[in-house]
């Protein structure tokens, strides 16, 4: 009876492709999660299967099981995992990618930061977009905060540090020119207010938006440079740590922790987790999203035993 029930309940949710129910993808899912900390839930497994199939088309693996071998065997593992991650995160970058993050910032986090910082006489927010790629994230944050400058952030200033390892990404980011695909989540209000026309149907961000951002090249594994990023209120580091091995990830996350002022927040990509990476940050639930908190010392809640 129980087996029948389960089989039937699976039939209740026809997947987009029958292959997605291939149990091999569950193994690949767990492997990717353990190696990179990026997790595909049941409803997202088809995305992972899609990424695997795109990789399979380019490799000698013709079936999912062969592909599992490819990303588990010691000789091919590291390279293939990196390629797969590229496929997984492809097309992930666009402006205003995560609405739940922004609404949570507006309704929960900014009010809290404003309250705690005001108490110590601060009226400036420092935000770090670590691994900013081609600039979508820092520009989104800059526009979003500019929108708040007559409301929540009245009388406040902010500055955004946007860093990436890749020089070419930084150059593209500095130009601030985006096509329709990157702008697919950008509302008319933002388009009108913060962009000007560029080549073809592309749009370029206005100076007002760009002037709040400092772009620079930074290797997150460079311990010396990491020590200089102090007094940060919010760190955004989306789909970057997934490329690090566990020891490097621990080290980088330790830097982020010390760079943040408490209470300060550390945002990861939607499907990323810090499980077993650190206990210093506290996982915090917000409507529709989660984030990691560096709690103020002596604040409510003691670290987990």
């Amino acid at each position: 009876m129980a087996a029948e029930t389960q089989a039937q309940s699976l039939a209740a949710n026809p997947p987009k492709d029958a292959d997605d129910r291939d149990p091999v993808y569950l193994k690949i899912r767990d492997l990717v999660y353990q190696a990179c900390g990026i997790y595909h839930s049941e409803e997202k497994i088809y995305l992972l299967a899609g990424a695997c199939k795109r990789r399979m088309a380019l490799s000698r693996a013709k079936e999912s099981r062969q592909y599992l071998d490819l990303i588990s065997s010691p000789s091919t593992r590291v390279l293939e995992l990196r390629e797969l991650l590229n496929e997984i995160t492809i097309g992930e970058t666009c402006l205003f990618r995560s609405t739940p993050q922004l609404t949570a910032l507006q309704n929960v986090i900014l009010p809290e930061l404003i309250a705690t910082r005001s108490k110590i006489g601060l009226r400036k927010l420092r935000i770090w977009s670590a691994g900013c790629s081609t600039g979508e994230e820092p520009y989104t944050l800059s526009m979003f905060l500019l929108e708040q400058s007559e409301k929540l952030l009245k009388g406040w200033t902010f500055e955004i540090s946007a860093t990436d390892l890749n020089d070419r990404s930084i150059e593209t980011a500095k130009a601030g020119v985006y096509g329709t695909y990157a702008l697919r989540n950008t509302t008319d209000l933002y388009r009108r207010k913060y962009f000007m026309p560029s080549d073809g149907d592309k749009l370029q961000v206005k100076d007002e938006v760009r002037s709040r951002i400092t772009f620079s090249r930074l290797n997150l594994s460079d311990d010396t440079k990491m020590l200089f990023m102090k007094g940060i209120d919010l760190v955004f580091c989306c789909n970057v740590l997934i490329y690090f091995d566990i020891p490097s990830k621990k080290r980088v996350v330790q830097h982020f922790f010390s760079n943040l002022q408490a209470p300060g927040y550390f945002f990861l990509g939607h499907a990323e987790s810090l499980y077993q990476i650190t206990d210093q940050f506290r996982l915090v639930h917000l409507p529709g999203t989660t984030t990691y908190l560096k709690a103020a010392p002596g604040s409510e809640g003691t670290p987990r035993p």
Partner: peptide
């Protein structure tokens, strides 16, 4: 929506 941050472990 309840606009708050919840630290379940705390």
């Amino acid at each position: 929506e309840e606009w708050r941050a919840i630290d379940l472990a705390a």
